[in-house]
């Protein structure tokens, strides 16, 4: 034979197989852990759902002594504090993102970005403590004054109702807002930075002012990513335990008044688990964890759907 064709035969592919095995194991681990978590908490929640039925979700009273386990006021508290947090954090975060990407000179941009990221690494318990010792006492008179302004005004008068202490839905919402601001700001900033220079030039060349250019080019380009970052922040605000627990006031209440104390799902789980002696109470607390898990899952699914849709629209696929 003139030709040496031996090199056509398959090489030893052990390394390739090992690599594939290792990556597969990594991927499988996360699925297994997620599955175990879901299965465990679903299984341990069964007792609560069996004894309470659907009233677990509709019963506002949480009275373990009377064997009444209702999660509604905690679901409400979680939703209210997370909503306040998002409403307060979004304008500030977008302001930071737009300032760093569009307005700030480069020497100012770096320190602002670094400081924003620093806020993200502060442990949440530190936020909670700061909220108790500093923010709550300072806010009490502010709440009282604001409540006075809106006294007697329809709707707003009920939302900004009488304030008695600094530990309220509003305080928790504020602390959560500070915590999620770096998340929303840094993801939005990264998305905005991917806005092509050609888009910006295109808008400016048509006579857009800087703000019009930002609205037409930067925000249009970044809309999907911004929604995604807000949803991520919302998920974080809903799930945050200790910071919210320290400043929310820990009293189950459903009221329109954001200046009244309340409680949230993660906070009540954290505080009551240690003293949960009866099986039903433990199961009810686990069921609240499951509820929170499902709520954050829904938020994430919605976020993914929104982001995907807007990406598709941008690529011209619909």
């Amino acid at each position: 034979m003139a030709l040496a064709l031996d090199d056509l035969k398959s090489k030893n592919q052990t390394a390739d197989r090992a690599f594939r095995g290792a990556t597969l194991a990594g991927g499988a681990t996360i699925v297994i852990i997620l599955g175990l978590i879901a299965w465990t908490i679903a299984d341990k929640s069964r007792l609560a759902f069996k004894t309470e039925g659907l009233s677990f979700f509709t019963e506002p009273r949480w009275a373990p002594a009377a064997n009444v386990y209702g999660a509604l006021s905690f679901i409400y508290g979680t939703a209210v504090t997370a909503t306040i947090a998002v409403l307060l954090a979004v304008p500030v975060s977008l302001g930071i993102a737009l300032f760093t990407t569009q307005v700030a000179p480069s020497w100012l941009k770096r320190p602002i970005v670094a400081m924003t990221d620093l806020v993200a690494v502060v442990p949440s318990v530190v936020f909670g403590l700061w909220g108790i010792i500093f923010l709550a006492p300072k806010l009490t008179p502010v709440f009282k004054r604001v409540s006075g302004w809106f006294h007697g005004v329809p709707v707003l008068g009920r939302i900004f109702g009488p304030a008695s202490s600094g530990r309220t839905f509003m305080t928790a919402g504020l602390i959560l807002a500070i915590m999620i601001t770096p998340i929303i700001a840094s993801i939005s900033r990264e998305v905005m930075e991917t806005c092509p220079l050609t888009d910006r030039d295109g808008a400016l060349a048509l006579g857009a002012t800087r703000w019009e250019m930002i609205k037409g080019a930067v925000l249009t380009h970044s809309a999907g990513g911004i929604v995604g970052s807000v949803m991520l922040g919302l998920g974080r605000a809903m799930g945050e335990t200790i910071a919210a627990a320290l400043v929310i006031g820990s009293s189950a209440a459903i009221t329109a008044n954001v200046f009244s104390p309340g409680d949230s799902l993660p906070s009540v789980i954290a505080f009551e688990w240690g003293e949960a002696t009866s099986d039903v109470k433990r199961s009810a607390l686990i069921a609240m964890g499951l509820t929170l898990f499902v709520m954050t899952l829904i938020v994430n699914f919605v976020a993914t759907a929104v982001v995907n849709r807007s990406m598709k629209r941008m690529r011209g696929e619909s």
Binding site: P196, T198, D199, D201, G202, A203, L204, A205, L206, G207, A208, T209, G216, A217, T220, H221, R313, M314, G316
Partner: peptide, 20 residues
């Protein structure tokens, strides 16, 4: 400058329609 650009339009090297 914005008024100048309304009188004097520009077309760029790479087609740059907005994602609209």
């Amino acid at each position: 400058a914005t008024q100048v650009r309304r009188h004097i339009g520009m077309v760029f090297q790479k087609p740059n329609p907005f994602p609209k």
